[in-house]
Design a protein around this nucleic acid. Structure first.
Lengths: 351, 351
DNA sequence: CCGATGCGCACAATCGATGGTGCACTTGGT
DNA sequence: ACCAAGTGCACCATCGATTGTGCGCATCGG
């Protein structure tokens, strides 16, 4: 008398078939059906003919397992979570694309959520993922790594930080120092003595930005250029504030500096917004470098050197850290891309 | 004798607390705990003091409900699914961003998966989502709408097509005809007589592309330009094939046509890839229009008119269709964006 | 002809949360 | 003091799949 809520699956119009339906139709027991369809019928010594019958009926009924039930029983869901800052951003979406590909390769289902860089939302999302018993979580662009680690520890949840490292858990980041140093060197090459290169964008408080600024400082001074604090403008990531910041800068210095290190694509967007109001000549005597790559940004009216983070490798390393936990921080070197270079993602290549 | 697997939750080191743990600690029964924490203690006539006790203990234990168990019991998961073609694409990622925002606003958890435009993968993903008992699914850029509708019908799953319509279910699309017509008109304005505008990219078999081609044809002929079949090049969406196609075109016509309607950003990427091998002058005498918008693409060396699909509105309408089902196709008008215009997404504004 | 071995499978407990049902006790009325 | 109505909660079945255990039958050796 278990199972019989008038669920007429034969005609296909009603609810999804369960192993109990298949059991009834095949004359076998639910556990046999489960074993047969779950692939472990050998271990359970189910005869191959029984298995075939069950498979056939399951096929006819369009059976597919209820993964919530399985997840409940097995205390794991087959879901894996990733928290990113935004979907509509080249870097993060490239991470998601790779995260998804790897997950699927392992037979896992990716759940990707965006925090909009809001620490509260970030934690709420994490709680939700934990409630769904995801197998592990990647957090990219974490705004509050310590809170995240605390919540994960409490729930016994494996997690890896990507891009922005956390102290309490394994992390994978770009080699921000190395990438920024390389980009800075390119910008400075052949620059006239007395030039005043500037750095714009980001928050000094975040790991990635502070490493990049450190590299920018070191290279600039090594190359013999003067460097005062007003050459470092940490105006955040938002295009709007970048736009205001560059407008202010141009007022102050009567034009653009000879070299400009732009800390993110969103910042570059903001600058472009301002440039639309200026004559083309305004950008002619400046060398631009941008940390992060976009195929279109590489092909602007004025040349831009770009740093392309290796999203695929970041994700691969992150999965490695899940497989073989350690407390270390893994650094992945980014690539320096000369202006006017088009790269397409390996994914969008296909469509 | 139910529940006691030596789960020492008090010290916080072991597994997540359940209502059974809270029940034991509070002296109440599991169902009381459930009702208390689930907010329906009034209906169940649980006293407020009991509720407060339970809440306190739940708090201390860091309780959060097992959503798989709840989902199993309630036959719905609180998950909502969306299938897109790619994450790393401005249009789709903008859809996901809006989809997620709306889902969260409704207290639902978004699961977004990418099909890479592979019909088989698309169906596999759909099956998985169904297995997780998602409440409904949006499918953007469907490659096999009929198969999707069939699978959803069999599982009794609500679904809405976005961008590419399906016949068996409600759909929301851009007004591809209107958008393409407007873009074509801009491209043709003031063009010398005898000019031969071209259309490049996409698959003639997909709805969106065929509507755009129809508009392109109609406007071109209305404006009095000759139009032969070789002016329509449906080379797919992949940057690589677009690159080859434009190379071939330039060989054939000895340069670029006077006007070029580019059917997607990925196609534009492909063209740029080819242009990098040419002198700057090569693009000087051509008017470019691109269906889809990208802030950087709007600021290329040569001006590009762009059509910006209204992702936010598409998603809003799609949710409307879930709430109030109907078989109709809703069209959302896109915007025509003049060259050198920077728009940032409302989301990345924040970071 | 009998016990030992092994094969093929069924039974029942379990995962955590929910909701229908009903019991025990209190209060109020007469 | 007794019955009725109401209060506060516990008990148990249920969702669908997995898994430890053990029963019944067949085969085989002695």
């Amino acid at each position: 008398m278990h199972r019989d809520r008038g669920n007429h699956r034969v005609d296909g119009t009603n609810r999804k078939a369960t192993i109990y339906d298949i059991a009834r139709l095949s004359g076998a027991s639910p556990s046999t059906v489960s074993a047969a369809l779950g692939g472990k019928w050998k271990a359970r010594r189910i005869s191959e003919t029984t298995v075939n019958t069950i498979r056939l009926i399951a096929e006819q009924q369009g059976y597919s397992p209820n993964l919530q039930a399985r997840g409940l029983r097995q205390a794991r869901s087959g879901l894996v979570g990733m928290i990113i800052a935004f979907h509509d951003n080249r870097f993060f979406s490239s991470l998601s694309q790779n995260f998804e590909a790897q997950a699927r390769q392992r037979g896992l289902v990716p759940v990707i959520a965006s925090s909009l860089r809001d620490p509260v939302e970030e934690l709420r999302i994490l709680e939700t993922l934990i409630s769904y018993a995801v197998d592990f979580v990647f957090i990219a662009g974490a705004t509050d790594p310590d809170a995240i680690t605390a919540a994960c520890k409490a729930a016994n949840m494996r997690h890896v930080f990507v891009d922005l490292p956390g102290s309490g858990a394994p992390s994978v980041t770009s080699d921000n120092y190395g990438g920024a140093a390389a980009l800075t060197r390119v910008l400075l090459t052949g620059l006239p003595h007395g030039a005043r290169p500037h750095f714009i964008g980001g928050c000094a408080s975040d790991q990635a930005t502070s490493r990049r600024i450190a590299a920018f400082r070191a290279e600039t001074q090594t190359a013999g250029f003067s460097l005062s604090d007003d050459q470092i403008i940490t105006c955040g990531y938002a295009p709007g504030s970048a736009r205001r910041a560059v407008a202010a800068l141009m007022d102050r210095c009567d034009g653009l500096p000879e070299a400009l290190f732009i800390n993110s694509l969103t910042v570059l967007e903001g600058l472009l917004g301002h440039f639309t109001t200026l004559p083309d000549a305004a950008t002619e005597h400046t060398r631009f470098g941008c940390y992060d790559y976009d195929p279109f940004a590489a092909f602007l009216r004025f040349p831009v050197h770009m740093v392309r983070q290796n999203a695929a490798e970041l994700i691969v390393k992150a999965y490695d850290l899940i497989d073989k936990p350690s407390r270390q921080v893994v650094e992945v070197p980014p690539d320096l891309i000369p202006p006017r270079t088009i790269f397409s993602s390996p994914f969008s290549e296909q469509g």
